[in-house]
Design a protein around this nucleic acid. Structure first.
Lengths: 143, 143
DNA sequence: TTTTATGTTGGATATAATCTAAAACGGTTT
DNA sequence: AAACCGTTTTAGATTATATCCAACATAAAA
C-alpha cells in the first residue's frame, strides 16, 4: 500500500535489489527514522501501516540491506541488534545504562599502521563510544 | 580443584569479587587464552578440567567480570558474544567472512569534539575494524 | 504476456542468554 | 573451629533473538 518514490526504488535497484513493498517499507522506515530501531520495532512499525510483512521477511531484508551497504547494523551485548540507514557517515554512542544508541558526528579516525594489519583487508573503521547518555548521566537527571 | 595463584585472586578481590573455583577458572582461562572465545567455548574449556561449572555460572561470572572491567565483551551480529581478558589496551578486527575477532595493536584515537558529546559521559572509546582476515583474504588463500 | 529468478510466508527450529529457588560455599567473626 | 551470612552455584525452565524451510507469490526482464 505504500507509495513508491523513485529515489528509494533506484537506490535498491542500484544495489541489485528488487523493490518489493516489504523491502521498500523497511528501507523507507529506516530512512525517515532518527533512532536505531531493533528488528522487532521495524517489524511492528512497518506492519502498523500495511502489507503485513512476516518476521522472516524483515530479517531477510535487513540482512540484504546490510550486505548491500545501505543499512548499518549495530550489535548489542545480549540485546537485539539495532539498525540505521543514515546516509551520512557517523560514529555511535552506546549508553551503558539504558542501552540506547545515538549518533556521534563523524570525524576522521587514523587507520592503524599498515604493519600491524598484516595481510588483513580493511573495509571499514567503526568507532563506538560507551558511557552514559544525557538522560542517564547523574547531575539533576531523574536517577 | 584448580590451583589458586595469588595474582588472580588478588585481582578479583581488588574488584570486590570473591574467588570461587568457577570464577577463578573463567578468569584464568581468559587470561592464558590468545583468542576471543564465546561463552559456550569458555564453558567447555573450563569444564574440561574440573569442577563442572554450570552454564548459568559462566554467564554470571562473565557478566561480573565485564562489569568489573577485568574482561572485555565484543558483541557480534547474530552470533554469540566473544570475550577477552587481555590486560593491554587494544582495538579489534572482525572478519566479515569467518566472523573471527583479532586484536589490533592499540593506538590513541582522538576523542570527538566536546560539543558533539552534549551532556553524555564518555567512559570508553572502542575502535572496531571490519574486513577480511589473513585467512579469508583472496590472493593465494584457499578461497 | 510469459517466464523465471528472486522474494515472501508462517510455523518450526536453532541459538543465545537469563531466570528461578534451593542448596552450597567463602570469608569473616566469634 | 563453629557459627554465621551474604554471595555464588546449580539444573532446568524460560525468554529472547534469529534462522530455516518448502510452498507459494511476484517484480522485472524477455
Amino acid at each position: 500500500m505504500a507509495i513508491y518514490p523513485d529515489a528509494i526504488k533506484r537506490t535498491l535497484a542500484g544495489s541489485g535489489l528488487r523493490s518489493t513493498p516489504q523491502r521498500y517499507a523497511v528501507m523507507a522506515f529506516l530512512m525517515e527514522q532518527a533512532g536505531h530501531p531493533t528488528a522487532a520495532e521495524i517489524f511492528e512499525a512497518v506492519n502498523r501501516v500495511d502489507p503485513r510483512s512476516s518476521r522472516a521477511t524483515i530479517y531477510n531484508n535487513l540482512r540484504d540491506l546490510v550486505r548491500a551497504g545501505l543499512v548499518r547494523e549495530v550489535a548489542m551485548e545480549g540485546r537485539a541488534a539495532r539498525f540505521d540507514a543514515r546516509g551520512m557517515r557517523h560514529h555511535h554512542f552506546i549508553c551503558d545504562r539504558c542501552g540506547n544508541v545515538e549518533d556521534v558526528e563523524w570525524y576522521k579516525v587514523p587507520r592503524p599502521a599498515a604493519g600491524s594489519l598484516g595481510r588483513r583487508v580493511l573495509r571499514e573503521c567503526e568507532l563506538i563510544f560507551r558511557g552514559l547518555c544525557a538522560k542517564c548521566a547523574p547531575r539533576r537527571a531523574s536517577h
